[in-house]
């Protein structure tokens, strides 16, 4: 069993919800990224997504775009990120994911990429510009090296939900609303309808992401899914405090986690 599957098994048995947090690797440098991972784990994050910097992150809003730029600025390469993951694995067994654009995998070489994921301890990969139909060319390697490719569904997926949700592994990433990543003051999605359809077809736990930035929103949405994903709001703290962001991020993640499992 993959670490992601084990985590969700544990969460289920305890009757709790999981918190997934996102930061961009190498923002502002890999040393800070390493400290942030430990701090977020201590603060209660259950799964961490590391963004791989890309020159043209088309699915991201301004906050993560800027983080991606800072990651590139610090010279962060995919091979450096794998080395970071290997270091992280000496101290933590929490599930780690990479969030990245397909071209980075394609250029690295799909088989070599998943082999490195498996060797260094990456449990899953989220590729925002790879829809279900285009999975095949990398899915064979993901499977071979037991790395989970996380599928996404969006409010616009409609009839596609059945096709995607019924074949997903690990967890299903449910995009909260239309648009790119980034903070939203409110959601207009009909979550009840959206999740009725998802839950009818999904064999794996669900996670809601895109736009969740406050403890209040965590409380508003936690009833719909098994996990919530918070990215831009954390990245914004990293943007503001840079290398000194660890304590601030820790405090914020602790607040989110408390809101998630508050009775």
């Amino acid at each position: 069993m993959n670490r992601i599957e084990m985590l969700f098994e544990k969460i289920k048995n305890k009757g709790e919800k999981a918190l997934i947090t996102f930061i961009t690797a190498g923002d502002p440098d890999l040393d800070t990224t390493e400290r942030l991972v430990y701090a977020m784990e201590e603060a209660g994050a259950d799964i961490i997504e590391l963004g791989v910097p890309f020159s043209d992150p088309v699915a991201e809003g301004p906050i993560i775009q800027a983080a991606s730029g800072r990651g590139l600025q610090s010279g962060t390469k995919l091979s450096d990120i794998f080395m970071l993951v290997a270091r992280l694995r000496c101290r933590t067994q929490m599930p780690l994911l990479l969030m990245m654009y397909l071209n980075s995998i394609f250029r690295f070489g799909p088989e070599k990429f998943f082999e490195e994921c498996s060797k260094n301890g990456i449990d899953g990969v989220i590729v925002p510009d790879m829809p279900f139909e285009e999975k095949d060319e990398i899915a064979v390697f993901a499977e071979k090296y037991n790395v989970l490719l996380i599928d996404l569904v969006a409010p616009t997926s409609k009839k596609r939900i059945k096709m995607i949700a019924s074949q997903s592994r690990g967890f299903l990433y449910c995009v909260s609303s239309l648009g790119v990543t980034g903070q939203r003051s409110s959601f207009s999605t009909d979550f009840k309808c959206f999740f009725e359809e998802i839950d009818r077809h999904s064999n794996v736990p669900t996670a809601i992401g895109f736009g969740i930035s406050t403890a209040e929103q965590v409380k508003e949405l936690r009833g719909y899914a098994t996990a919530l994903i918070v990215g831009s709001a954390i990245v914004k703290i990293v943007e503001a405090y840079g290398k000194d962001s660890v304590m601030e991020v820790k405090r914020f993640v602790r607040e989110l986690k408390a809101a998630l499992n508050e009775k």
């Binding site: 829809p131 616009t156 995009v175």
Partner: peptide, 9 residues
Amino acid sequence: QYVPETLMN
């Protein structure tokens, strides 16, 4: 068709 799921439909 390498686009986010939101655009597939």
